[in-house]
């Protein structure tokens, strides 16, 4: 099959960008979307052009490196799928495919389709952890975790940090990402000591970079791991509680 591509090209973070049009010929239906781009890139290099830059690594949907806006949908038309797991059989011969980078001021474009997602790392650094120094842990079975809590924590912990939630959100909000980590850690008994501090600090850092959630739910649809919208409610609830509890704890210092 043959597809027409409209791809965002941008030489650097401060360079102006624009769309370029390419034709990909002899695309096999078995190809993954990124393999199709690999092919276009090889042709670009051989013909003296510059290949299209995009982030990718594991190509099995777990590392979270890849992420393209494909025809106005984060990670493309197949739901519950990262870009690397999208296959060309989803498209038809002659289709025009518009490929854009994630758009968010929290994710500045680096080059072409690659963006800088280190704001996510900063959110985690603000409190997305349980402070336990190596070697100081008690026997793992000393703290029992109800199966339902462990399962719900795992549902939230499945987040791969790709940024599709922000990209898909009309508000550019990062509540699903932040809520997923808060929910994962706040549901577990091990995470209780830092629960309120964690929530307040992570949400405050999130606020600095991203937009405001208005509960449209597009994030959870775009999420390759189907992180549920409930994690946002969890975030909202714990944030408000934290406002009171943290004040109380501080007063007791």
């Amino acid at each position: 099959m043959r597809v027409n591509l409209r791809v965002w090209r941008q030489a650097g973070p401060d360079a102006p960008g624009g769309f370029e049009t390419y034709q990909a010929e002899e695309v096999s239906e078995e190809m993954s979307f990124l393999e199709m781009l690999d092919m276009v890139n090889e042709e670009l290099v051989v013909s003296g052009g510059l290949p299209i830059t995009f982030d990718h690594d594991c190509r099995e949907g777990i590392c979270g490196s890849c992420g393209l806006m494909i025809n106005g949908q984060a990670h493309g038309p197949q739901l519950g799928t990262a870009t690397c797991q999208l296959h060309m059989r989803t498209f038809s011969d002659g289709d025009t495919i518009v490929i854009e980078p994630w758009r968010s001021s929290g994710f500045p474009v680096i080059q072409d389709l690659a963006v800088n997602r280190s704001a996510f790392d900063q959110i985690i650094e603000a409190g997305g952890f349980i402070s336990v120094a190596t070697g100081s842990a008690p026997d793992a079975n000393l703290t029992l975790v109800p199966k339902v809590a462990a399962d719900a924590a795992m549902d939230a912990a499945a987040c791969i940090g790709c940024g599709a939630c922000v990209a898909a959100c009309p508000n550019g909000a990062a509540q699903l990402f932040t809520g997923a980590k808060i929910t994962h850690l706040n549901l577990l008994p091990q995470g209780q000591a830092e629960r309120w501090k964690r929530t307040e600090q992570m949400v405050d850092v999130m606020d600095e970079f991203f937009g405001s959630c208005s509960n449209m739910g597009e994030c959870t649809t775009a999420c390759p791991k189907g992180i549920p919208l409930e994690v946002i409610a969890e975030l909202n609830r714990d944030y408000v509680k934290a406002q009171f509890i943290n004040r109380k704890l501080t007063a007791q210092d």
Binding site: F129, I130, V132, T134, G135, S136, A137, P138, D139, A140, N141, T143, L144, V145, P146, K147, A150, D151, A153, M154, A157, H184, L185, L188, Q190, G191
Partner: peptide
Amino acid sequence: NEIIDQCAAQGVPFAREYGGQL
């Protein structure tokens, strides 16, 4: 064995039995 202790304390959501054990 220490690895499992460490990871459980960090909040790694290992699979659990209904009784809450690993």
